[in-house]
Design a protein around this nucleic acid. Structure first.
Ligand code: MN
Ligand code: MN
Ligand code: ZN
Ligand code: ZN
Lengths: 123, 123
DNA sequence: ATATTATTGCGATTCTATTGCAATAATAAA
DNA sequence: TTTATTATTGCAATAGAATCGCAATAATAT
């Protein structure tokens, strides 16, 4: 199934690029001028994740946030921490790698590390 | 509001102690012989979290898991990683501390670090 | 034994995210 | 350009997790 170029995809990507941080579906929808269905946005976001364009972060509030990938063409590689500000509700990718000594016998597939608190701006 | 000793609280704590790992509400409910309402279990779990008896982990599936605290009497202190097995759906506390260099100006309140993959048993 | 109020059960509700299906539109083929 | 193919979308329904309001219950103090 080849991907097609659509206004929705362009709009979503533009919003995320300009924001420079991770965003939730509803935050993205608010930033798009044209009306796009919620389900469509979710589908676009999930497709981007499948294609290595975006990556998904699940915060402690159980919500999903989406952010641009840096070097994830073939395989996702997100061994970095994220920060969620409880004041401005912002989620950002921190330039800090996650490196831990995983106990023997465990097979790692994914990482979801979110630190929460008050961000630099809100402090 | 002083806490009272109830069968529900005892049952929940017993299940979590015997399991020796983190559990979700529905998993806990299944392990309790007597019938306890879902909302009640959630309230008991959240109260335990408030009291520093349990701590809550939110996995990438958006679900909440609860595990016994080790040394969290006055203040929660959960700077350790967790592992969620995608095969047996188990969530466990890893004896591996999270230590990262947080960028200047950020105020850390909580950590939620979950590694997912296949656990030692399922590999 | 009685009073106080923390705890519980139940149903309703909130919130996030996904899914089925028909309609639409992007792209390829003629 | 016209036609065919099928990825994408809109809409409403659905799923799933967790919380909330309120009356009833029961643990603890008096
Ligand atoms: Mn990231
Ligand atoms: Mn833990
Ligand atoms: Zn902030
Ligand atoms: Zn396992």
């Amino acid at each position: 199934m080849k991907r097609r170029k659509t206004p929705t995809k362009e709009a979503v990507l533009e919003v995320l690029t300009k924001a420079g941080k991770a965003m939730s579906q509803d935050a993205i929808e608010q930033q798009i001028s044209i009306d796009i269905n919620r389900a469509t946005i979710y589908r676009v976001l999930n497709r981007f994740c499948d294609d290595g364009v975006l990556h998904k972060i699940v915060a402690e509030n159980g919500k999903q946030y989406f952010a641009l990938c840096n070097d994830c063409e073939e395989q996702h590689n997100h061994d970095h921490f994220h920060f969620r500000c409880t004041q401005c509700e912002t989620v950002e990718c921190l330039p800090v790698e996650v490196n831990l000594a995983i106990p023997k016998g465990y097979l790692v597939e994914n990482m979801n590390c979110v630190i929460s608190g008050v961000c630099k701006t809100c402090v």
